[in-house]
Design a protein around this nucleic acid. Structure first.
Lengths: 244, 244
DNA sequence: CGTGAACTTGAGTCTCCTCAAGAACTGTGG
DNA sequence: CCACAGTTCTTGAGGAGACTCAAGTTCACG
């Protein structure tokens, strides 16, 4: 039920990572061991609301999510902001800053979270020696691009209710890949955060959730969601359950 | 005036590539030479409307745009489609397929175009030996992610006219980076294609262009665009002239 | 020169946004 | 442990921006 607790429990289940693209597929336990030999991997714990890093801050490390839930957010010069993603165990953060001196977005914990800090230049050096690692990193980056593009497709072609349905299915699928229930979970986001990601206002998200409930596709009470008819949601959202 | 002609002329101006992120900054002439030693770089010419590759087709090469103009497009299972980018000289295509067996999107020429085909496994091997090349590739991927996220921000927070203004500024900036006029160019896209990219209908794009014209910010006649007041456009689009 | 695609413009509609108010929950301090 | 303040969520009513449909024009190409 509680994502954090559950995530910690599942530490001994690396097989689950094979399913979701951004997941530890990227960096299985084996490679983490190799990394350790080249650099100091430090654990960092965050409480809800705490920043992992700010936009503009010097880029010095990648972060592997070990447990918890985070959001990343871009903010424009004139103050417009948009959430560009939510992150679960197994995802690699800050990869988008590679090749730049500073981070281009904020990353903020939305739950009690633990990340592994992988100092960047050392990681780069490790990659040079270990082609495997290099390939994984590149593949992770490419996967990120594909996922972003698929969300662009969704935002450009789906209406509010379809976007919310797709968002729920995406979350469900990711939880499932991590060994949690895909049909019953607790949202870590406010309606406004979901809305920001989906390019909708929080009232619209609420209305979409209410309507999905009214249709019998889901049950929703505040943050707690039960998916009653995933097939119907998938049909609604355009057939493709799968993101990526 | 004609982008193709002009591009061909500018072949001897690698310095211009330093400005735009996805540009040859990625793979300067020097590294191309190195690549040649590891693999066969073949030139491929495309006419308007011709596919560089289809979604689903086997991924076997990266492509460096040498001249011309292309679009990439994602299509969902149920037929919804969205243009995810337009590509100019210096950009590296198909990087998003790295780590997968097949291409995930279509890439189609919108003008007479020449690309250099870089067979993929060989490129990978070259990267192993030449850290420089590796770093460039990773940086190019990271830059792609940042650009996509910035467009997500734009699509999520700007209205139709602002999006169109930003699109024009982006094009202007990219043309300038390649040594062309940033204030006078010919669009290679239809209104519908622009609209697909910007998540707008073609009529809405037309109306936005007409209104920008009426305000005196641009002159537009079919595909030919003159930017009369870039500062006003930038103000309109939220202050940031710069994408990325 | 004719045909089809691309573009423009208008009128009407609909989706989502804005504004507003109230309810439910969270957590903080007395 | 309870009261209160602030946030989050929900729902309604009204309005705005973008879409749909439609018609006419311009242009490119065969």
């Amino acid at each position: 039920m509680n994502a954090v607790a559950a995530t910690v429990e599942s530490e001994s289940r690396p097989s689950a990572f094979a399913t979701y693209p951004a997941a530890l597929e990227t960096l299985p336990a084996l490679e983490i061991e190799v990394l350790r030999q080249h650099t100091t991997v430090t654990r960092r714990k965050l409480t809800p609301g705490q920043y992992l890093y700010h936009a503009g801050q010097a880029f010095q490390a990648l972060y592997l999510v070990h447990a918890g839930f985070l959001k990343s957010r871009v903010v424009s010069a004139d103050g417009r902001e948009q959430i560009t993603g939510f992150h679960l165990r197994g995802e690699l953060l800050a990869v988008d800053a590679i090749g730049t001196a500073t981070h281009g977005c904020d990353v903020i914990a939305l739950d009690y979270t633990e990340v592994w800090e992988l100092p960047y230049p050392p990681v780069l050096h490790a990659c040079m020696r270990i082609p495997e690692l290099q390939a994984r990193l590149t593949a992770a980056l490419a996967g990120e691009i594909r996922r972003d593009r698929n969300w662009m497709l969704a935002l450009g072609t789906l209406d509010a209710e379809q976007r919310v349905a797709l968002f729920l299915l995406d979350l469900a699928q990711r939880y499932q890949a991590l060994g949690f229930s895909p049909s019953h979970f607790v949202l870590r986001t406010t309606r406004a955060e979901m809305g920001s990601f989906l390019a909708l206002k929080h009232e619209t998200v609420t209305r979409a959730l209410s309507h999905l409930h009214a249709q019998g596709y889901i049950e929703v009470e505040r943050r707690e969601v039960r998916i009653k008819d995933a097939a119907a949601l998938a049909r609604l959202a355009g057939g493709s359950t799968r993101i990526q």
